[in-house]
Simulated scan of single mutants.
Amino acid sequence: MRIALVDDNPQDAQVLQGYLDRFSREVGLEWSYAYYSDGQAFLDGDTCQFDLIVMDVDMPGINGIETARLLRQRDPDVLLMFVTNMPQYALAGYAMDALDYLIKPVAYGDFTLKLQKTLRYLRRDRTEWITLHTTGGMVRLEPREILYVESTLHYLTYHTWSGEYRVRGAMAEAERTLQGYSFARCSRSYLVNLRHVRAIEGEDVVVETVRLKMTRSRREEFLERFTRFLGGMEP
């Protein structure tokens, strides 16, 4: 993972760098980071190389909120975390689609909780493949492009952006294949990709433009999983 630290206070940046080094050792991950003393210096560089940007708000020249606004014009998806001693800017920070907001002085425990949330978001968007042995031959799919899986008798139908793929098997097999990719059962017949849920209306789960029935026995667990997904607590 590549991280940018943008802070006009080098001592504060050094503390965060120490936290990153410690967390890296504890979880066995490797990452690199670059330090920028102000927003303009950061914007003058290659901002698209980073997976996470940790940015102060109160900086000379253009502040962190304005820097983030200009950044979003280039990269609407990069993960952004504000770290500042100015809590009154929290709402403005979230308006920049910030992943999180920390108040200085930052404690190690609080910072690591935010880093763990960041890793969940990054893993959620990772590119991986599964292989399906369909009735028409072998197909490779990215889990993210699967909308939902439907079980009918002894067959599974994978509904995707690119079409439907039919596989002989049971729903338990699909659950094992897609474990760790934020799929959840809303009924005995449907395994839903939580990233494609647009609404839950009564007994219906709206998956993009399709409505799927949610059974009473699955409702509580499905809603809990969906809530965790929205909060970044699902992979």
Rank of each mutant, 00 (worst) to 15 (best):
R2H: 14
R2C: 11
L5A: 07
D8V: 00
D12Q: 13
A13E: 02
L29G: 07
L29Y: 08
L29S: 11
S32C: 13
Y33N: 13
Y36L: 08
D38Y: 00
Q40Y: 02
Q40N: 09
A41S: 14
D44K: 00
D46L: 06
D51P: 12
V57F: 05
D58E: 15
P60S: 08
N63F: 01
N63Y: 02
G64W: 03
I65V: 12
A68Q: 07
R72S: 09
R74C: 14
D75M: 10
L80M: 12
F82G: 08
V83P: 08
N85S: 14
P87V: 04
Q88F: 05
L91P: 01
Y94E: 05
D97T: 13
A98K: 04
A98L: 05
D100F: 00
V106W: 05
A107V: 11
D110C: 13
D110R: 15
L113R: 15
L119I: 12
R126I: 07
T134C: 13
T135Y: 09
G136L: 02
V139S: 02
V139R: 07
P143N: 04
R144A: 13
E150K: 11
Y155T: 11
Y158C: 04
H159L: 06
Y165S: 09
R166A: 14
G169A: 11
G169W: 09
M171A: 10
A172N: 15
L178G: 07
L178H: 08
F183E: 08
A184F: 04
R185A: 14
R188H: 11
Y190C: 09
L191H: 08
L194H: 06
A199G: 06
A199Q: 11
E201G: 04
G202H: 01
D204V: 00
E208M: 10
T209A: 12
T209R: 12
V210T: 13
T215N: 04
E221P: 00
F222M: 01
L223V: 09
L223E: 11
T227I: 01
F229W: 06
M233C: 10
E234Y: 00
E234G: 02
